[in-house]
Write a protein that binds this DNA or RNA. Structure first.
Length: 801
RNA sequence: GCUGGAGUGGUGGAAUGGCAUACACGUCGGUCUCAAAAACCGAUGGGGGCAACUCCGUGAGGGUUCAACUCCCUCCUCCAGCACCA
């Protein structure tokens, strides 16, 4: 009899739904386990990436349930965002209708996969019952000065006609549509994530169960560097130009100063100088270039002399001040001291413009490795001994860095400082399908926050979107016109909406109490369920979403709404699903639709294959033959029921206990591929030697997290009452793991020559005698005397001759 | 450039100091069948040998060790993130 997956899967999905099998409720008696997968954007169809992500999570959730944990496993939809607007323009529908239709379709697809979600906790970020709390959080931030508006040079995507956060600019392009990002001066809303930079950086140390590379990526992004701000004075009028450097040890080697073209002092420096016209022309030219072009021209280091000089405070030398495009206003002070001998960029620039050089670090103390400034082909950026550096001559440069910094601080010519790469988070978008920012502009009172009791500021269901840019909300008169919450006079509503990453920065908290209507989340519920024990999602969120969520959590901690500082205890980043070595994508035309795979092989086969094909973190090459293999394996297990014996073979029994041990460990470590291999080995052994109902039942329980419908059905056929998930995870008997006789490999000079079966606790002497008498070993020892016997108990024997 | 990860049969992968290639896919052979499919059994890293067996073999080269896919050094290739960050 062949396993009928279609009927079985439908049957159990209905039972699970009818019995509310995965409903989670706090239970102080039980240990909680909050398992979360990154919620999807509701595009209407799930793809293989979702299948993989959610299968991994589902196995973990079901495994923990069998182990006796009180598991919460919720699902929802990250439902705001641009595709809904694009679809609305294209199909002439409303984003709201379109999104809700997609959500329903997606729910159906997820249910077909048999995932154990507590659907009663479902949330969609586009519902006002959710985004009301986005607005509430925004107001709390506004109250504390963490949400603020400022005019500045921002990233602008011309294709999406909206602003972008720094984190959303990937290689100079828009993260969503890849169009080249432009710079624009606009007044925009920001969140002061920089107030949390220290915590965001230092608390990374707590995240012991996060992948190292995610930690590195976040560290890199926050980008702390220690250095010194050195005060150079203008020769003409003594005005100070602060310069930031991480290489205080090279201060005596500075031969010129460079300012960014946008530096506020530049205009003054060139005024009336013969260099003025050339300098102005250069500044205008750089201003036209976008940031992307400017940072891509690595080779070409252009610049002009200002005609002014600054004084090096450590030796009173006069240094020419230049303007160059390789110095950025956004980092440090927008001014640098150039040390061409020990910085490659400065070196190239100095060569190009014939500026002077001076060596201050010699790699060694001997004469033949000595550097000579004008013979160098490139800058020496390594360590060595200081020279031409006054009182610091002869010292090692690396420890001297600190010493020189302190000395400058004492002398008042510098200050030890930290610089951070992290910028405040730009959150306003000139878009319709997002959370309205709850601010009203009053001609008298200025920007005024909406009163808490007036939340939510509802997004009107209708708005004219043409895709021509500009905030669609600005065209909805009833929305824009509002009374000032302070003075009651006629005022205008903010028409920008929030970036969707705002929505996903706290949804994990909302899941704890999705219907709660007195606050974003019920503190009691959050206290029980949070933090998330295991979070699973794609590596593409390593910076954006994970950093923002950490920021929000720290903010809630400051509001005393939570009593922990990191939201996600463990993180697993699953690899992508590839087809023919490439990411599956519409444009490549290599998409494999999960739905048709479910039709042909069933959800359980798909789940099994996707876990077996590769470890969760690595990329997975799609291979339909592998899926067929998974299907065959299920049928093989299915047929065991027809050949059960009264008593299991003792070898099979031992094998079962080895499997329990191995699989329990593997499941705990998310090594599903090797766990499945163990199941296959056990199945092969059962085929050869035979098993009874008890052995088979235990195999079924262990398989259930991976292939839940299949296992429920077998569990029932085997005569058990109720769901297999009410069973408990099998325990192994350590006594059954101990083998009386073991097979020892025998090596001669580290090469395998023989294997002998011996009693587990054989004495060394007896073992030696046996080995020396072994037929296959003897020829190798002929005429030689063993120098040494290496015996690793119960592992191996190695004879050295 | 910097940082991180990886490199193992025809393929996906296993083994993190102790029997390299578990498990699966594919291929080949067999059983069953009128035949095919399914199922079941067996073989399957490369070279040499009728064979027992033997030599070589985890990107390349060196080292440590009785013993290295695993640890150390040098290098190559691929992937990812950041990048004129001073």
């Amino acid at each position: 009899m062949l396993y009928n997956f279609k009927e079985t899967e439908e049957k159990w999905q209905k039972i699970w739904q009818d019995t509310r099998a995965f409903r989670a409720q706090p239970d102080p008696q039980k240990k909680k386990y909050y398992l979360l997968e990154m919620f999807p954007y509701p595009s209407g169809k799930i793809h293989m990436g979702h299948v993989r992500n959610y299968t991994i999570g589902d196995v973990a959730a079901r495994f923990k349930t069998l182990q006796g944990y009180n598991v919460m496993h919720p699902m929802g939809f990250d439902a705001f965002g641009q595709p809904a607007e694009n679809a609305a323009i294209k199909n002439n529908t409303k984003p709201d209708d379109w999104t809700h239709k997609c959500i329903r379709e997606m729910e159906t697809e997820l249910k077909k996969m048999g995932f154990s979600y507590d659907w009663e906790r479902e949330v969609s970020t586009c519902d006002s019952s959710y985004y009301k709390w986005n607005q509430w959080i925004f107001l709390k931030m506004f109250e504390r000065g963490l949400a603020y508006k400022k005019a500045s040079n921002v990233n602008w995507c011309p294709s999406c006609s909206t602003t972008l956060a720094n984190e959303e600019v990937i290689e100079g392009g828009c993260w969503r549509c890849h169009a080249k990002v432009e710079q624009k001066d606009l007044e925009q809303w920001y969140l002061k994530i920089t107030d949390y930079k220290e915590k965001l950086l230092y608390n990374l140390e707590q995240l012991k169960y996060w992948p190292e590379r995610v930690i590195f990526m976040q560290q890199n992004w926050i980008g702390k560097s220690k250095g010194v701000e050195i005060y150079f004075k203008l020769k003409d009028n003594g005005r100070v130009i602060p310069v930031f450097t991480t290489r205080a040890d090279t201060i005596f080697g500075a031969t010129y100063i460079v300012l960014a073209p946008e530096h506020p002092l530049v205009k003054e420096l060139i005024k009336g100088k013969p260099q003025e016209p050339a300098a102005l022309e250069f500044i205008a030219k750089v201003a036209q270039e976008s940031k992307t072009i400017r940072s891509s021209s690595e080779v070409n280091k252009e610049g002009v002399f200002t005609g002014s000089f600054a004084v090096n405070p450590v030796n009173n030398e006069e240094l020419p001040i230049w303007i160059a495009d390789y110095v950025l206003m956004e980092y440090g002070t927008g001014a640098i001291m150039a040390v061409p001998t020990h910085d490659q960029r400065d070196f190239l620039f100095a060569k190009e413009h014939n500026l002077s050089l001076r060596v201050v670090i010699q790699p060694g103390l001997d004469d033949n490795s000595r550097l000579s400034a004008y013979e160098m082909a490139e800058a020496y950026e390594g360590d060595g001994y200081l020279e031409n550096s006054g009182q610091f001559n002869g010292k090692k440069n690396s420890p001297a860095k600190e010493e020189i910094a302190l000395w400058m601080e004492v002398k008042g010519i510098g200050k030890i400082q930290e610089h951070w790469r992290l910028r405040d988070w730009l959150i306003s978008r000139q878009r319709y399908w997002g959370t309205p920012i709850p601010i009203i502009y009053c001609p008298e009172c200025g920007p005024v926050p909406v009163n808490e009791k007036d939340l939510p500021v509802e997004l009107p269901k209708d708005a004219p979107f043409t895709g021509e840019g500009g905030s669609p909300l600005a065209k909805v008169k009833e929305f824009v016109e509002a009374a000032c919450p302070k003075c009651g006079k006629n005022a205008r509503r903010e028409t920008d909406t929030m970036a969707t990453f705002f929505d996903s920065s706290w949804y994990f908290l909302r899941f704890c109490s999705p219907q709660f209507n007195a606050a974003p989340f019920d503190l009691k519920e959050a206290k029980y369920w949070m933090p998330v024990d295991q979070y699973i999602g794609g590596i593409e969120h390593a910076i954006l979403h994970l950093l923002y969520s950490r920021f929000f959590t720290k903010f809630f901690q400051d509001l005393e709404m939570v009593d922990f500082n990191e939201p996600f205890e463990r993180l697993l980043t699953q690899g992508m699903v590839l087809k023919d070595g490439e990411v599956m994508s519409k444009s490549r035309g290599n998409i494999v639709d999960p739905d048709s795979m479910i039709k042909n092989y069933g959800a359980d086969s798909l789940r099994l294959f996707i876990l077996f094909a590769a470890p969760p973190e690595t990329e997975l090459e799609w291979d339909e033959r592998g899926l067929e293999g998974a299907f065959k394996f299920l049928n093989r297990v299915w047929r065991i029921q027809d050949n059960l014996k009264d008593k299991a073979d003792p070898q099979v029994l031992k094998h079962l206990h080895r499997t329990i041990k191995k699989v329990s460990q593997d499941f705990g470590e998310f090594k599903f591929n090797t766990a499945i291999a163990s199941f296959m080995e056990l199945t092969n052994a059962i085929y050869q030697l035979g098993a009874d109902k008890e052995v088979f039942s235990k195999l079924v329980v262990m398989l259930s997290p991976i292939v839940p419908h299949f296992s429920e059905e077998l569990w029932q056929i085997l005569g058990n009452q109720g769901s297999v998930f009410k069973a408990s995870w099998p325990q192994y008997d350590p006594q059954l793991l101990v083998e009386e006789t073991i097979e020892l490999p025998i090596q001669v000079n580290g090469k395998l020559r023989s294997k002998i079966a011996v009693a587990r606790d054989i004495s060394e002497e007896k073992l030696k005698a046996l080995v020396l008498a072994d037929q296959k070993v003897v020829p190798w020892l002929e005429g030689k005397t063993p120098k040494k016997f290496i015996i690793v108990p119960q592992k191996l024997v190695n004879i050295v001759i």
